[in-house]
Computed example of a mutant assay.
Amino acid sequence: MTSPVKVHELAKMIDHSLLHPTMTDSDMVQGCKIALEYDVASVCIKPYAVPLAVDILKHSNVLVGTVIGFPHGNSTLEIKVAETIQACKDGAVEIDMVVNIGKVLQEDWDYVEREIAAVCRATHENGGILKVIFENDHLPEAKYKIRLCEICSKLGVDFVKTSTGYGFVKGADGSYNYKGATPDDLELMRSHSDSEIQVKAAGGVRTLDDLLKVKALGVSRIGATATVAIIHEAKERFGDGADKNVVMEDSPSGY
């Protein structure tokens, strides 16, 4: 189908990711300046650097987000709640929390629901929004993802999110592979979550075409490190801020 696209609206789909373990404070300062220049939706920054991002972005409409239990989801429920409260006190307004993946795989749904509920409550009570990260590369069957969507819908979280960007899976040959946000998973998460819950794609969305394809699947946010390249390509293709018509693929096979 054909629909109008604005570069600014595409930029507002991007959470600019500043989470790589090797990033220094100066790297994150530069990343915040990129987010400010391109007026993206948010930065998603290391927890200790939330105050730094808040200071740089305080006079903009670029939001500050951070991660909880990142990247493996192994922290205790109490620590995840404490991290959330501290992040919100430091000025974060978006919280991306990793579920306890082992508990999901053993189908301890009471624990999983209790943990998500506790972090959701702490986030909302402190004025934030919650994105729940499934880490789909570690979930080999659709049933796990569907149940997580059902729990998130029941609890009223704000987003369901595919991946951390760091969920590498060890293969039989010893190599590590990572898929990230796949079309099948995005379709599943959109179809099994309440309509009020948004979907965030993270991992593998590196180009403008990638962004447009996941947008066509109902995604409203992406996590990206390739922000500059994506927006530059959008400006070249659509013009800087102008409305253009673009063909959105109904069923992309991949990206």
Rank of each mutant, 00 (worst) to 15 (best):
E83Q: 09
Q86S: 14
Q86K: 14
A87L: 10
A87F: 12
A87E: 14
C88Q: 06
C88P: 09
D90W: 08
D90N: 07
A92Y: 02
E94T: 10
E94W: 01
D96K: 13
M97E: 07
N100S: 15
Y111G: 15
E113W: 05
I116V: 14
R121A: 12
A122T: 11
H124G: 09
H124A: 08
G127E: 14
G127I: 15
G128S: 12
G128H: 03
G128N: 11
I129E: 08
I129H: 10
I133W: 04
E135C: 11
N136Q: 13
E141H: 07
K143H: 09
K143Q: 12
L148C: 10
L148Q: 03
D158V: 09
T162N: 00
T162Y: 01
T164V: 09
V169Q: 15
K170H: 07
G174F: 08
S175G: 07
G180W: 01
A181H: 05
D184S: 14
D185L: 02
L188M: 11
M189P: 07
H192G: 03
S193Y: 10
D194V: 01
S195H: 05
I197L: 04
I197R: 06
Q198Y: 01
Q198F: 00
A201R: 09
A202K: 04
G203E: 05
G204K: 00
V205G: 02
D209T: 04
D210M: 00
L212A: 14
L212V: 11
K213M: 02
A216E: 15
A216Y: 11
S220E: 03
R221I: 06
I222A: 08
T225W: 01
A226L: 06
A226C: 15
A229G: 14
